[in-house]
Design a protein around this nucleic acid. Structure first.
Length: 289
DNA sequence: CCAGGTGACTGGGCCCACTA
DNA sequence: TAGTGGGCCCAGTCACCTGG
């Protein structure tokens, strides 16, 4: 499906992603956020909370609570919104800014008493109106070995982007859409955030594509995998794509959207049970075949 | 008129309470 | 006890509004 060179690149990316996982730099495939949390925790000496802990990402030695945000920026503009913040639960909001290959460029730290109640939007206008601390690039401390591994990861990520394999930092979903469109001769929806439509065929029929990377790893505690928020999607067909550890396509199914039971939170196993399901690519995963 | 700011969406992923 | 609904985590994109 992909040529050798691209497959090799994805393999290297998967290896490097595992390396960061083993070094405890990342815990999930939300790379930007995880690397940001790593950098901030290292900088402020934080103990990280569990993955799904509400509001608080880390706690320092004095018991101060931190919410950490991360953002990749291509220029010097820091102004981008960060909504949904529960400032009553935290003492500091920390934002880590990276360049395209995950070199940390700047960290800002805002005391929670500088933040408004309710929704918080970070923008230049806002930053100019409050007191906050800035840590510049040369003051950001990361052990050299980890810094190099993150850099290597970032370079691989950029290569994937340059090859046109991915178009965002949501690699799993991007690859699934890429594989499905190639296999079924679909046209990817240009609009990246239109509700419920990922692609069209030549007759204008709508398709929603969902992708899951399914492989054994220490990353998850539970085994079950779900497909959330299919409710209200008006695509005619649902395509489910699975990826293996190296991000190669390891299965693909096509089914009528209306036949999906429990669209609010469907199990991945609907590929076994949904009426009218069509196997496009035979699964290599036993429990999905 | 246009750039900056904002809110409403998108994506994947994980876990807990409840229930059949 | 396995399945379901819901809620939380993460970042990113873009249409639209607004103020200079």
């Amino acid at each position: 499906m992909l040529d050798k060179e691209k497959q090799q690149l994805l393999k290297e990316f998967a290896d490097q992603s595992d390396k960061l996982f083993n070094l405890k730099i990342i815990r999930t495939d939300s790379f930007t956020g995880e690397i940001g949390e790593f950098v901030a925790s290292n900088q402020f000496g934080l103990k990280k909370t569990d993955r799904v802990t509400r509001a608080v990402d880390g706690i320092d030695s004095k018991g101060n609570k931190y919410q950490i945000k991360a953002k990749v920026i291509e220029n010097e503009k820091l102004n981008n919104g960060i909504g949904k913040l529960d400032i009553d639960e935290i003492d500091f909001l920390v934002i880590v800014y990276f360049d395209l290959i995950y070199r940390p460029k700047k960290i800002i730290s805002i005391k929670s008493n500088q933040l408004p109640k309710g929704k918080v939007g970070i923008s230049n206008k806002f930053l100019n109106s409050i007191k906050y601390d800035t840590i510049e690039e040369n003051e950001i401390k990361i052990p050299i070995s980890q810094r190099n591994e993150i850099l290597k990861f970032g370079r691989l990520y950029e290569s994937l982007r340059k090859f046109g394999i991915i178009r965002s930092r949501r690699i799993v979903g991007d690859l699934g859409e890429f594989y499905a469109c190639q296999q079924l001769n679909l046209i990817l929806n240009e609009n990246k955030n239109e509700k419920g439509v990922d692609a069209y065929d030549k007759n204008g029929i709508k398709y929603e594509i969902k992708t899951r990377r399914v492989y054994e790893s220490g990353r998850r505690t539970g085994k079950s995998r779900r497909l959330n928020n299919l409710v209200g999607k008006d695509s005619k067909f649902l395509i489910i794509v699975t990826l293996d550890r190296s991000f190669n396509c390891s299965g693909m199914w096509l089914m009528p959207m209306k036949n999906v039971v429990n669209p609010k939170s469907a199990h991945l196993q609907i590929v076994n049970t949904t009426p009218g399901v069509k196997k496009i690519i035979k699964s290599k995963i036993a429990w999905l075949d």
